[in-house]
Write a protein that binds this DNA or RNA. Sequence first.
DNA 1: GTATGCATTAACGCATGCATTGTCAATGGC
DNA 2: GCCATTGACAATGCATGCGTTAATGCATAC
Lengths: 232, 232
Amino acid sequence: MTSESDKTNGSDGRPISQVRRAVGLLREMIITNKLLPGSNHLESELAELLGMSRTPVHEAAILLETQGLIEVIPRRGIRVLPLSAADMEEIYAILTELESLAAYDLAQDGLTPEQLATLRAHIDEMEAALEVEDRPRWASADDSFHRDLVAMGRNRRLTAIVSTYWDQVQRARLLTLYMRPLPHRSNADHRALVDAIAEGDAERARAIHRKHRLNAKRLMVELIAQHGLTAV
Amino acid sequence: MTSESDKTNGSDGRPISQVRRAVGLLREMIITNKLLPGSNHLESELAELLGMSRTPVHEAAILLETQGLIEVIPRRGIRVLPLSAADMEEIYAILTELESLAAYDLAQDGLTPEQLATLRAHIDEMEAALEVEDRPRWASADDSFHRDLVAMGRNRRLTAIVSTYWDQVQRARLLTLYMRPLPHRSNADHRALVDAIAEGDAERARAIHRKHRLNAKRLMVELIAQHGLTAV
DNA sequence: GTATGCATTAACGCATGCATTGTCAATGGC
DNA sequence: GCCATTGACAATGCATGCGTTAATGCATAC
């Protein structure tokens, strides 16, 4: 995950502000279900929890609200937004298009051997995890694969958007991790995708990834429906 | 306190906050070049300009920074980010994919006759403007067409992203409005797109719009290069 | 003349205080 | 007994103040 344990400086060299700290911590707590979807929390409560005053929490809340993670209701508190199956469809539709674009761009621009090796290492890790049926380990490698794939592209804005929405489905992915069949099929897609990128076949890379993502979306929506989860 | 327009409530029924006011006003000033790209502005200066204290300006700045419109540099002020040709390419690439997806979805879900009429009215308006070579009027209609197209889809998140990035290229569009040839060709694309949507041909709608946007991107990048604008 | 270091100053991050406003409950009227 | 109206309370939005820190200018040394 994001491991910026350095307390004084961010990756940009600027000292880490309380606002950034609040955003990071709150996002983490939401993604990992420390703050449950649908729950309400007062600014002062969160401020005390994070060891800061209300101001940075307030500012972090405004930010997270625009990113769709929470809703600020003036005198009721900060509400962690549950995601319905419909929300999931929206998000996956966006991720599908943008990640497919990233794959296309990567195939066109070409990757260095090191970059290809990194992606393949993630796939190997996924396979190793699958063999011992270690789902969290597989999920972590899958996460890294997709994040790296997009981050290797040169489009910083695209990376940012994908990261934002990927965060939002994390919670649902964690929740459904043990409900789904072991994703053997998924890894074949990953290998085919990296091969297409390595060969510079942009259209194929895009098509493979789109199909891969559409499958993931269908699976996720079905799981949520099957298990009677109206929202997560 | 402030005696601007005494609009006390936003579209969501909630009273309009100073932060929202600041975000809206600053965005507007940036898009319309009231705040020039590359210029620096102190929080206190903007606060006085907008008739509020530093706090809401500070919070608006954090927000606009995540949207890529400005950069907050701690003791140098708030810097309006210039967009390079490379930035333009990034943004247009994202807009191309997401708007094409919107077109695809619209064709699949179908539009009401009223919605189709609205889109066609925008096209008629563009044509009328072209005939009298009224470029601002054309630009306004084109803007409405694209915004409505995406907004008619059911994907609220997609609408939000497109709106954000569309804002960012507005400045460049305004700047290059008189540099480009009159976009007669463009309107043929628009009609073909609406026809494809009306016929429910999702793949065709997507393809038409992608091509349309790729052309727009090429034109924009060329214009910026031709006129020696390294950034706008 | 130039470069370096220190002092001054001012801008911003954040804490705090105040006023506004919505919520909840109690009391009174129907 | 139920609903409405009012009052008290509490949470938030925003203004203000303070401490921190970085930028700038001047002086001094080389």
